[in-house]
Nucleic acid binder design. Structure first.
Lengths: 354, 354
DNA sequence: TTGAAAGCGCTACCAA
DNA sequence: TTGGTAGCGCTTTCAA
């Protein structure tokens, strides 16, 4: 038996029909269902019940036209396959869904034409606001979002001047990691990170130096390479085959590097965590939890960043003013087994804001 | 200097204003801009230029109200952080953006309440259709989408009966892998896969057996475990410490298992690919490309599945009928270095449909 | 060739 | 307490 699928379209239930069925005017029906105006409780009850029985759902298109508010926002990103934008989206969605706000997902790659296409579609559909996110905090989306006449909030991407932006407090995250090492008695802490072309590499290296200085510990020269396991391997070779005494702790710029570091250490029969501790960055669950031993890692709380961005956008949409600037939200340290702890726990600090 | 961000809202440019500025009626302006009706080329040109100059963009809300078509679809998923839904979304978006259709992203976890909330919001906003996706082809979303009066297409999730669904041709993918092994002279091909609770595990094991039989090769008993690197390790131990002669090829149920297998083989000093070949499943770039050696893997072409699902939904929205049933789209084999090839290439087969 | 008028589904104002 | 009416921004007859 071969059936046919179709958009079976029974006539929609309009307010007019509900009103007719309940024997009242559309105006009264509207007020009854929106909880406005005055009327006898019986009338209101009758109308409500009629609407429920008929399965009435108000047409948001008509409401939006009138209210000049579509309860819709656009999420612009260039992080197609990324592990950064997904937790971000989860947070955004979480903050908005309960307020009846839906999210248009717009992936623009790095294509200005595609970006313009999406932004046009969003404007036409009268989104209440836009959240811009990306995969790097030091790269702009391929389109200018200022002067659109729509509130815009940036999260985890390079913002326009005089806008509101949310990012992770990277320096705070680094401090958590280094202080964790120090509290466990590690004294020779190295830093293996990504390419110099990334702003976060400098941010983290700087925080690494400052924290060590504050703790009166000697710093290694940060080793910069790529965001790969292969580079983690190579870095270990350099640290252990050089002339200086090897470290007893390695703070890595991301979890992949850390993974490579751990593998390389095992191949050299250097015991993790007994002889050396390792901490990663990103807390990418699937990477961190499956390394041997499981990796302690700094988590940027991207979901929280998304949530804050969503809420901030709503206040702007509400017409309230908000201070511009970059807000840095605290990271947390997810402790697994690569530093000598065995119980999984989390360490947080207050945001240092900015 | 502390500035204030706001939703700066200059009065929007309406068709009425464009018409006034051009000295014509709204009706004429509408027709001019939509390329309908008849009028002198000069009038049309004048109106178009005026609209452009004023930055006019039609209010899609008003258009939708009238046309009963919102140029908006909903994407329902329970794969929050997943690597499956993302490529799928990319394909969907790709198929729709050029037709001016925007996508509401709705993550429903496995929460029926959340799912209902999102579906209600989508209905209210009069989406033209819904695409349902998930992280497993043998699990339903926590909500019934039939009888909504809206076209629904399923992609990579358990569909309703009498609906249209798209999935990967898993059996075809398995055949690609096994035949690749065979063509390289491998004769003792083992299969290490995930938990028996997954339908794909049985699908793939079955295809594994059938393909070996067709090639007149002996099959190993498929080893079922978890989708983890740790299980890949353990499986290698079993294959090499048992009484039977070890395999010269291992076909893995996903890339993580394959990764664990490769690592375990290295620890045993069994050379990949010289002594044994390894193929994974999913072609999860970040996992497959970074293993040592880089992993040959079956790619389910999720983006293509997403694209097809998007196009299918559009035809339904158009009011055209379409055959119901499950469509299986072909996989491809991405050849890296874990089987003895050194150049990266791709092998495809025609869909076996169904 | 052009435009007046009706109406999509709803809310809001004001009069009854 | 209730309902008639106007109108959100647009498209579409239909008449001029």
């Amino acid at each position: 038996m071969q059936e046919e699928a179709q958009g079976s379209s029974m006539e929609p239930v309009t307010l007019r029909k509900v009103a007719a069925a309940a024997g009242v005017s559309v105006a009264t029906a509207s007020k009854a269902l929106n909880g406005r105006g005055r009327m006898t409780p019986e009338t209101r009850k009758l109308i409500r019940e009629t609407a429920d029985r008929m399965g009435f759902r108000p047409n948001a298109l008509a409401q939006s036209l009138l209210r000049k508010r579509s309860f819709t926002v656009g999420l612009l990103t260039n992080d197609t396959y990324g592990r950064f934008s997904l937790p971000l989206m989860a947070g955004i969605s979480e903050a908005l869904v309960d307020k009846g706000v839906s999210v248009f997902l717009c992936n623009v790659e790095d294509d200005p034409r595609l970006a313009q296409l999406h932004v046009n579609a969003m404007r036409d559909k009268r989104v209440d606001g836009i959240i811009a996110t990306g995969k790097r905090i030091d790269r702009r989306l391929p389109i200018d979002l200022s002067g659109l006449g729509i509130p815009v909030v940036y999260a985890f991407t390079e913002p326009d001047p005089a806008s509101i932006a949310f990012v992770a407090d990277e320096a705070g995250g680094v401090r958590l990691a280094i202080e964790h090492f120090a509290s466990l008695g590690r004294r020779r802490i190295a830093h293996v990170s990504g390419p110099a072309s990334f702003a976060v590499v400098h941010l983290r290296a700087q925080a690494y130096r400052e924290t060590l200085e504050r703790l009166q510990l000697a710093a290694f020269e940060p080793l910069l390479g790529t965001w790969s396991e292969a580079w983690g391997h190579e870095a270990v070779r350099r640290l252990f085959e050089g002339t200086q005494k090897p470290p007893d702790a390695i703070f890595c710029g991301n979890d992949q590097i850390a993974r490579g570091v751990i593998d390389a250490l095992r191949e050299r029969s250097v015991a993790v965590p007994d002889e050396i501790g390792v901490i990663g960055f990103d807390n990418w669950e699937i990477m961190a939890a499956q390394s041997r031993p499981p990796l302690t890692s700094v988590d940027m709380n991207l979901t929280a960043i998304g949530r804050e961005a969503g809420l901030a956008l709503l206040t702007l949409v509400d017409g309230q003013k908000a201070e511009t600037g970059i807000r840095r939200l605290p990271c947390r340290l997810v402790v697994r087994e690569s530093c000598g702890q065995t119980t999984v726990k989390t360490i947080e600090v207050q945001s240092t804001s900015g």
